[in-house]
């Protein structure tokens, strides 16, 4: 009896080895989908609480835009931008960030998982740790922020004055997807840093939440050094400033040429590649040093 069980076990072992050979990206996406589905079900166990936190999330972010509206009750323009133009910047930044936050925002909790040792439970499963970590604590309540961003962007598109061309129309979805990807890369890079410094979540927040707030206002408001920094060092400017000023027909920041507005996909790809390398380095350091 035990002998047949063992033989059957061996066949199954061969199958397992074959099954384990699929691509890491496919495996990662598959694991991400399964784990987020579990978290959604988990959230739905407390439906009322879910509705309230989502609504709360929406109201909190909505109030943030109300502050901008109040400002414009006293002035007609800010840094050379009218209210609809600022709403355009704001909506783009908020939507792109909201999407990234929804997709991988829980990565900022990595430091806690390293500290309490629960990261190890993810590492004994047959799926990439990055995918499992990105899906960890997946919170649909973050849709509240995306909703706010989309509404502000809708308001901007309805009121702003743009000379639409096909290139500009095409740039809209490209900008949102690239922007979300750039923010995702920042989340992943920040989490990678937490492998080394487990209490660095606040530093990460400065770049993520701080970054999106910065981008909600026109680049003309800020010192040239800062704009240079977020263009060439941490290229957040490619989320909206560079492409959006082009769409609005405003001068590009730092006197960049018009074609720079079409760079976001390339910048996003480079950021994601670098974040991927940072993640690998972080994970390797965790595996060689322990917690």
């Amino acid at each position: 009896m035990a002998e047949t069980g063992r033989v059957a076990g061996r066949d199954w072992a061969v199958e397992k080895d074959l099954g384990a050979r699929s691509s890491r990206v496919v495996d990662g996406l598959r694991a991400y989908r399964m784990i987020t589905a579990m978290w959604i079900r988990s959230t739905m166990a407390y439906r009322a609480s879910f509705l309230m936190t989502t609504f709360g999330n929406f109201v909190a972010t909505a109030l943030d835009f109300v502050a901008v509206l109040l400002m414009f009750s006293r002035v007609d323009e800010l840094g050379g931008y009218t209210l609809p133009q600022i709403a355009f910047l704001y909506g783009l930044s908020s939507t792109a960030f909201g999407l990234a936050d929804l997709a991988v925002g829980s990565m900022e909790k990595l430091g806690r998982r390293v500290r309490d040792g629960t990261l190890d439970t993810l590492m004994v499963r047959p799926a990439p740790v990055l995918a499992q970590m990105a899906a960890d604590q997946f919170g649909l309540r973050r849709l509240g922020r995306v909703t706010q961003g989309v509404l502000v962007l809708g308001y901007a598109l309805a009121t702003v004055d743009i000379d639409w061309t096909w290139a500009k129309v095409l740039l809209m979805p490209v900008m949102l997807v690239s922007g979300a990807a750039i923010f995702c890369a920042v989340f992943v890079a920040g989490a990678s840093f937490q492998f080394v410094a487990q209490d660095a979540a606040e530093v990460q927040n400065a770049f993520t939440y701080g970054g999106t707030t910065l981008l909600q206002y026109p680049p003309t408001l800020f010192a040239t050094e800062l704009v240079r920094g977020v263009t060439f060092v941490l290229p957040l400017a490619f989320v909206n400033w560079v492409p959006a000023t082009y769409v609005l027909g405003m001068p590009l920041p730092l006197g960049l040429p018009g074609w720079a507005a079409f760079l976001p996909p390339l910048v996003a790809a480079a950021c994601c590649a670098l974040a991927g390398l940072a993640w690998r380095a972080g994970l390797r350091s965790y595996r060689s040093t322990g917690s």
């Binding site: 080895d17 384990a20 495996d27 439970t121």
Partner: peptide, 11 residues
Amino acid sequence: TRLAHRIGVVF
């Protein structure tokens, strides 16, 4: 990940 299919872990 290949090993993960062959082992079980209880913490």
